[in-house]
Design a binder for these strands. Structure first.
Lengths: 346, 346
DNA sequence: CTGTTAGCGCTTTCAA
DNA sequence: TTGAAAGCGCTAACAG
């Protein structure tokens, strides 16, 4: 309430008076709902003209209050500051604005310890409910299980890039397995049979899924996955470097390496070049995440798998739309493809 | 109005009834304004207790309607999809949320032809005004002169990373000259006296300012700027590559190169390495923009100048705060520092 | 210190 | 085909 924003605007009554009709009629005409049918063409024209000349602009607040509902969605998320996952917000924002609607974004627990986070998220949900948002998108930076404030169960809520342990809330997650398969299949298609895999922390969904995809692709192609070619990086470039070195030192070294993220690919590139090998000539590399500034600028540019952040965000608002309009037949778990992005490292 | 979001909530009347007081009193107590002083401690406690047990949550809409004002700011911008300048939104969002307030973001004319853009921005402003935002932030992807929809002059509006030709609206822009000076001074401090400058399109504010900074630094140090060491890149890596080559072929080649953006630095790196020179040993490089994924991952990591996007966004909402609370003494033109980010290329 | 009263600008039965 | 009237949940004079 910082300010009395007083641009004396024309109200609906003004329009009614100018058009010589009642407020009700104006409402019918201007809200363009089904009720406008009951109004004569002539009246409609008069009303619209009056509105035009008066520069009438509906008051969203009054409308929402009277209608007892808004068409806003809230977003609670830790990722406002995360450069890569901010794409989720962007995707949601685009989809919302396409419908000329607004998203209220509440940052939650960015960099806070886990305990404080839940409290902050509760606060965020609280503020959002005060604004009577019609639904909430809850988005995480990295794919994992989360526990959300109970408040969120009071209205349509969709989880993005995460899922709740009890599996009650609808969620939208990347198809990690499919992504891992895409990466590995690309390598197999290029003729490789000895394919190393540099893993993330093996407990997180991304690691589990991508590894599974690696296996699946082998099996689908009638190949035997070499488990001794699986090695843990630690998600960093240095980790990727070390892991790649280990792979290269293997008795029968891989002819291709699938890195579970782009950052590790970066380190792997260094290791490979250090050994005097050329990419993709001597050894092929595929990454994961499609962090464009890494994958696009490595030399050679990295073939990788994209995490569909924007799509998940957009699908999130569409799912909320469905939920809000009463479609209760929403799948609890929607998976979005992680497509291969071809560059030059295979 | 997608949905009747009907979580039957406790209203202020409910609280009043439960506490045995009038709605007015509840309003005074709960809104925590100055008027709460006139209420006895005992009553306050009773009211708060009642609110607590009823799970009362104020209705932001009703409040705003009655108070005839909101504490929301709108953002109209083309940059929702621009990865680097999206930082502006982030900075604004952070500052707003710090005050527990919301930003309504309207994307405008993203990738549209210039003509359509103004129309879309008008629409965006329109929608924002319908929500009765208390002020608007208008942000551009790259520093330039813009013309904004007239509607925006009807309420507090702050331009970010751009300025209007007539200089009427308050704007927040990066201090390009200072940035150019920071870059060049760093080079001079390292002992360089032959400093090449790879420019952007020489007509845009960024190019003009950064070049000016390059000159200023020379003069401040008592050095003569070598105008024949100024060469135009075209803002791309390839352009930087070509420009650097030209510089290297100069009769008395520079011992340091200041590139007007990081992308061109990338190309310059290639040219330099191709010539068998080492950075920073044989030749130093400084960039501009601090596109972390470029500057952080080049080898060696690039010393560059940061564009203060987040700060500009944050300052934008603070400026709006000042404007909204009646401080009419706002400088029309606020410049934000472009600090040097030290890495290893000098 | 507390309550009465009158709206804010719109939607929405219900009746004409 | 149109209008009257009753709110939506809250704020803010003004009175006591």
């Amino acid at each position: 309430m910082t300010r009395l924003n007083h641009l004396p605007r024309a109200t609906m009554s003004d329009v009614a008076r100018a058009a010589g009709v009642s407020r009700t009629t104006v409402s019918f005409v201007l809200s363009d709902g089904g009720r406008a049918n009951n109004v004569s063409e002539a009246t409609k024209v008069r009303v619209r003209e009056a509105a035009g000349t008066l520069g009438y602009r509906p008051d969203g607040l009054a409308r929402a209050l009277a209608a007892k509902s808004t068409d806003w969605y809230g977003v609670v998320t830790e990722i406002v500051t995360d450069p890569v996952a901010a794409h989720v917000i962007r995707g949601a924002q685009d989809e919302a604005w396409r419908q000329r609607r607004f998203l209220l974004i509440a940052s939650a627990g960015d960099g806070e310890p886990e305990g404080a986070r839940l409290a902050l998220e509760g606060l965020a949900a609280e503020k959002l409910l005060e604004q009577r948002v019609a639904g909430i998108l809850y988005a995480a930076t990295w794919h994992r299980a989360v526990s959300v404030p109970d408040l969120l169960r009071a209205l349509p809520t969709v989880l993005i890039n995460c899922f709740d342990a009890d599996g009650e809330l609808p969620c939208i997650i990347p198809d990690e397995v499919g992504g891992g398969r895409n990466a590995t299949e690309r390598l197999i298609r290029a003729g490789h049979e000895q394919i190393g895999y540099i893993n993330l922390d093996p407990m997180i969904p991304a690691a589990i899924g991508r590894l599974q995809g690696w296996r699946d692709a082998h099996e689908a192609a009638g190949l035997t996955p070499h488990d001794d070619l699986i090695v843990d990086g630690d998600a960093t470039a240095d980790g990727g470097y070390a892991a790649a070195l280990a792979l290269l030192d293997h008795p029968s070294p891989p002819t291709a390496i699938f890195c579970a993220n782009d950052r590790m690919s970066m380190g792997a590139y260094d290791a490979i070049k250090e050994r005097g090998l050329r990419i993709p000539h001597d050894i092929a590399v595929v990454g994961f995440d499609n962090q464009e500034v890494i994958s696009g600028y490595l030399r050679p540019p990295l073939t990788t798998v994209a995490l569909p952040f924007e799509q998940m965000g957009a699908l999130g608002v569409r799912t909320l739309d469905a939920l809000a309009s009463g479609h209760s037949t929403i799948a609890t778990r929607q998976m979005v493809d992680c497509p291969l992005v071809e560059r030059s490292s295979v």
